[in-house]
Amino acid sequence: MLTIADKTFSSRLFTGTGKFSHQQSMVDALAASGSQLVTMALKRVDMQNRDDDILAPLIANGMNLLPNTSGARTAKEAVFAAQLAREALQTNWVKLEIHPDPKYLLPDPIETLKAAEALAREGFVVLPYVHADPVLCKRLEEVGCAAVMPLGAPIGSNKGIRTQDFLEIIIEQANVPVIVDAGIGSPSHAALAMELGADAVLVNTAIAVAGNPVAMSRAFALAVQSGRMAYEAGLAGQVQQAVASSPLTAFLEEA
C-alpha cells in the first residue's frame, strides 16, 4: 500500500484524463487501469462552447482527484490556479506544474519551489512536477511537499525513462514518495521505473492515445505491479563478465 499525506492507495498507477478521443473511452480505460488517483486541469469557461462534464463519471467511479496547475507560468499564477482548483474540486491536493515554455513543457524549478513553499504553508498537499533533479527534490521535500514527481522525459514524448541515473539518486534520498511522471510511453517504461524503486508512476498520453486504451490500461497496471514486485523481491546485481548458471563440470570429456 502506498500512503501519500492522508490517503492510501492500493494501485501504484496514477492516470491522467487528457487526450482521450471521447469521454466513454476515458472512463472505461481509467476503470481498467485500477487507478485511484486521476489528474484534471482547470480552464476558463468558454461562454460559447460548452465542455463535456468529465467530473461526474470520475466521482461516480470513486476516483481521488488531483487537479493540476497546468497553464501557470509563474509561482503566483500557480498559487492562484491551486486555490481555484481547491474550490472547483473540493480537494486540497494539487499537482503543481509550472512550465513556461510550450515547446518542451519543462518545469521551472525556481517558480516551482516558491509556489510549493507557499502552497504547503496554506495547507495544500503539494505534488510538484519537476525535472529529475535530486537537489531540487530534497528542497521540495524540506518545504513540505507530500511527494515529488520527477520526469522520465518531456510530457507526452513517450520516450521513457531517460533520467534513470538521477531518478535513482532521488529515490535513494527521498523521505517522501517519488512518482515518476511524464515521458512514460510503454508498460516496459513503467515497469523500469517501478523496478528502480519509484513509489508510483503517472501515465496519461500512452494510455489515452493507444489504439485500444482499455487494453493498454490493463497492460500498464500489470507492468506497474510486476515492476513493484521485482523491486520488493530484490533484483540481482549486474556484472560485466559472465557468471555461469550451470555447473561447469567436464563430464563430456573422454576419460
Binding site: 491522467g16 484524463t17 487528457g18 487526450k19 482521450f20 476515458m26 489528474t39 484534471m40 486541469a41 482547470l42 480552464k43 476558463r44 469557461v45 465542455d51 463535456d52 468529465i54 467530473l55 482527484l65 487537479p67 493540476n68 497546468s70 492562484f80 486555490q83 481555484l84 482548483a85 474550490e87 472547483a88 474540486l89 473540493q90 510530457i155 507526452g156 503517472l202 496519461n204 498520453t205
Partner: peptide, 27 residues
C-alpha cells in the same frame, strides 16, 4: 476567489468582473 460556501450569499454588483473556471480533462 469566492469559496463555494459563500456563493448563496455573495451578490453580484454592477460592473463586477467575473472569472469562471471549470475542471476539464488534463494530465
Amino acid at each position: 476567489i469566492i469559496s463555494r460556501s459563500e456563493w448563496p450569499d455573495h451578490y453580484l454588483q454592477q460592473g463586477d468582473e467575473v472569472s469562471l473556471f471549470q475542471a476539464i480533462a488534463g494530465g
